[in-house]
Amino acid sequence: MISGLITDTLSRTLGAATPLLLGTLGEIYAERSGVLNLGVEGMMAAGAVAGFGTAMSTGSPWAGLAAAAAAGAALALIHAFLSVTLKANQIVSGIALTMLGLGLSGVWGKPFVGAPLSARFSPVAVPLLSDLPVLGEALFRRDPVFYLALALAGGLAFVLHRTRWGMVLRTVGENPQAADSAGISVSGTRYACVTLGGALAGLAGGYLSLVYVPSWIEGMTAGRGWIIIGLTIFAGWEPWKAVLGALLFGGIDVTQYLFQDAVSPNFLKALPYAATLLVLMASARRSAGSAAAPAALAAPYRPGER
């Protein structure tokens, strides 16, 4: 009984954490290169509907996942064009993309509302470990996207800190002038990072409609894109800390199921948003030290200016 509850809670936590992790990893890369992408919510929504629609028509959840990433990346390219090439205000551009993504998803998704997903991922059982009592079922018999997200967290942390390209993109975000004079293409790097970030936001949306829910409902992203912006700050722009943040918020999401009989459902629904505020207040205390925002974040690069 108790072990069943633990398995169930842990399983739901990991499910809720996966899209948050994917989205946060993407935003970390965009922001590390110096571009603030506030379009995550819209990119997730577009990814959710593109993923669902493609999985329905092709019968393959993998094709759906690829379409989700492509939809997010396509929207992110618009953001890159506006903020890198046209040097537009990144905050307002991101908000415009959120409107566009939510609008597009509502329009495209209309025929899918309420349809059950026919093509689902089958769980992947890790040999031996999945037979462990209590934890085995929750940790090691999951959808493949969960493992993909974890692998991405490790891989992106490695690329960011241990490869030349990681150093290049960090320099572009901290000191674009220095990067430019070292012969690095600031625009090219930013385009790449923003597009990668959009693809991951799209994957996060695809996870919602293909695995977590799984169906398409308008507004199903429910502010997760904005929580991801908060988690990026909470994680101090570090991929491995994004795993911790996503687990924390996955857990908060699940409290909604645990306490649903005791507290007003609206307070439980407000909990992740309130927790985001609290976590950001707590982050401010330590961000004076190492975990400060990339120095050139949200500042368009204009060669020749200071």
Binding site: G42, A96, M99, L102, G103, L104, G106, V107, K110
Partner: peptide, 10 residues
Amino acid sequence: PAAAISLFNG
């Protein structure tokens, strides 16, 4: 759909 207006605004 109602979302058309959000698209328009975006």
